[in-house]
Design a protein around this nucleic acid. Structure first.
Lengths: 135, 135
DNA sequence: CCGTATCCGCATGGATACTG
DNA sequence: CAGTATCCATGCGGATACGG
């Protein structure tokens, strides 16, 4: 998608000719589009949470996905990991300040969604008309 | 993820216990996370564009994906389709007013991305340390 | 020109089992 | 408790060919 690199021009969004995986906006978009990453981020907004606790709170996530998601979030500097040498080891994950901005965006999305999802749903029903029965 | 249904409470975002595919925010998140949908939307910001023109402008998209993406966007009421019975048939796709809000959100994301992607990249480099050479 | 239909490789992600 | 490793089903998405 390729957004203008540094200065903010009059036009809201500029794009190049083709798909660019290295585009800054693409990176963020991919993060936001990541189902589990968003859930993890949201679950951490109340403060630090331990691995299995996180797992239980999210419920429908597998160990593999949670571990994988946390690692990538940590790599991106959005989540911090703190290990304590207790009897059974204790590990706490928390949001970094950088993640705050992302939460803010998610908040924007949530607000827009609540206002307009009704329109989208209505459009879907209208579009599907009345012949959805496949059997 | 399950955002609070109607009233906006003090907390920015509330969530239930588990993953909910029917959550309004989830729907929007999925759209935004959709690589091609975003590109198509952005490409249409300058006005109506025809199918193959769209294809050429985006470049790295297949017919299948473009067709599929346009259909789902139309179904959601984000894109409108107008067919003209010219000699070889002409079809123009355009953004609907509803899509304007989504573009606004994309703009927010783009702005945040440009400001903070540097931090993310730096974090990645720091995390990867210095042993990336795979060969 | 505007699509739809089919085939198929490849990555995503769940389930399970095992380790520090 | 906090993960890692492996196996495997599913589906996304590209390439290709054909129809309106």
């Amino acid at each position: 998608m390729t957004i203008s690199p540094s200065p903010a021009p009059p036009q809201p969004i500029r794009m190049g000719d083709a798909y660019d995986p290295d585009c800054p906006t693409r990176q963020v978009l991919d993060r936001i589009g990541d189902k589990w990453a968003v859930l993890v981020l949201l679950t951490l907004t109340d403060g630090p949470v331990r691995f299995n606790d996180l797992r239980r709170r999210i419920g429908a996530i597998s160990q593999k996905m949670l571990s994988q998601t946390l690692k990538s979030l940590e790599r991106d500097g959005l989540v911090s990991r703190a290990a304590f040498a207790t009897v059974p080891v204790t590990v706490e994950y928390a949001l970094t300040p950088l993640a705050g901005g992302l939460i803010g965006i998610l908040d924007q999305i949530a607000r827009w969604a609540e206002h307009h999802v009704g329109d989208i749903m209505a459009s879907r029903r209208a579009h599907d008309g009345n012949a959805p029965l496949p059997a």
